[in-house]
Simulated scan of single mutants.
Amino acid sequence: MDLQNLEYINRLLDKDVDLREKIKDQVTELDKKTRTLSGMLNKIHSTPTGQLPSLIDSVTPYLESCRETTAALAELIPPNQFWRWKDMWSFSLRNAVFSATLVEFLRNGSLLSLSQASEVLGIKDEWQDRFALSAEDYLHALISLVNELSRLAVNSVTLGDFEQPIKISFFVKDLFAGFAMLNLKNDTLRRRYDSLKYDIKKIEEVVYDVSLRKLAPAKLNRE
């Protein structure tokens, strides 16, 4: 191998190392934001239902600040290199999407779609070849959402909110039915999906106890 060729290869390697470090810096920034979000959202387990709207309002600016980081990442990634670098931010992006879906459920009782989650995090369609929210990362975030809601179902009863577990049960069962219609070939995603049955069982036990004790309105139980 001649010297000129070696120098060219070295320049390519140095360029990759430099890009990797820049991506790593932005992913670290996204991690900081998602950790802050997780810490704030963890308060839902000790916050009375009536005070949840103000808590969600305080979380929203931090969620929206993730848009700055996603934009910075999209700016860094060369065209058509999404899949080359995706693994560097997947975990962090899943955490951000988890926070976004939890906020949506707490605020409106509804599911945030993949496109809506992308919009919340400022991920634009024209970035598809550089930075995007993959279906796999979105589904991982939804599984994390169910994990968190199963915990919330238990803690809501402790705080005297007997309707929340029933609402969570309807939501989670509908979500689980949607998962059942997907052809999941990713081993990690499949294993996590299979574990959802334990979360559903936990929620059902709470709902059964609440219903047996007639602590929630009968009309809500029938819906």
Rank of each mutant, 00 (worst) to 15 (best):
I77C: 03
I77E: 01
P78S: 02
P78F: 06
P79L: 05
N80H: 00
N80D: 00
N80P: 02
Q81C: 00
W83M: 00
W83Y: 04
R84Y: 03
W85E: 01
W85L: 01
K86C: 00
D87A: 03
D87W: 11
D87H: 08
D87M: 07
M88L: 11
M88G: 02
M88Q: 10
M88R: 10
W89P: 02
W89V: 03
S90A: 11
S90R: 12
S90T: 06
S90Y: 11
S90P: 02
F91M: 10
F91S: 05
S92K: 13
S92L: 12
L93Q: 14
L93F: 12
L93W: 14
R94S: 11
R94M: 14
R94I: 06
R94N: 08
N95E: 15
N95C: 11
N95P: 08
A96V: 05
V97D: 03
F98M: 15
F98W: 15
F98N: 03
S99W: 15
S99D: 09
S99F: 13
S99M: 12
A100P: 05
A100W: 09
A100E: 04
T101D: 09
T101H: 09
V103L: 10
V103W: 07
E104Y: 09
F105T: 02
L106A: 09
L106K: 09
L106C: 10
L106G: 08
L106F: 13
R107D: 08
R107M: 13
R107I: 04
R107S: 11
R107T: 04
N108K: 15
N108V: 12
N108C: 14
N108S: 15
N108T: 15
N108H: 15
G109D: 13
S110A: 14
L111G: 02
L111D: 04
L112R: 02
L112N: 01
S113G: 04
S113L: 09
S113I: 00
S113D: 04
L114M: 11
L114I: 02
L114N: 04
L114A: 06
L114K: 06
S115D: 13
S115Y: 13
Q116D: 05
Q116H: 07
A117Y: 10
A117N: 07
A117V: 06
A117L: 10
S118N: 05
S118A: 11
S118L: 05
S118G: 08
E119M: 07
E119Y: 09
E119L: 07
L121K: 02
L121Q: 04
L121A: 07
L121G: 02
G122N: 10
G122Y: 14
I123W: 08
I123A: 03
I123M: 08
I123V: 09
K124T: 07
K124Y: 12
K124A: 10
D125A: 11
D125H: 12
E126Q: 14
E126G: 09
W127H: 05
Q128M: 14
Q128C: 10
D129Q: 05
D129L: 06
D129M: 05
R130E: 13
R130K: 15
F131K: 02
F131I: 11
A132G: 06
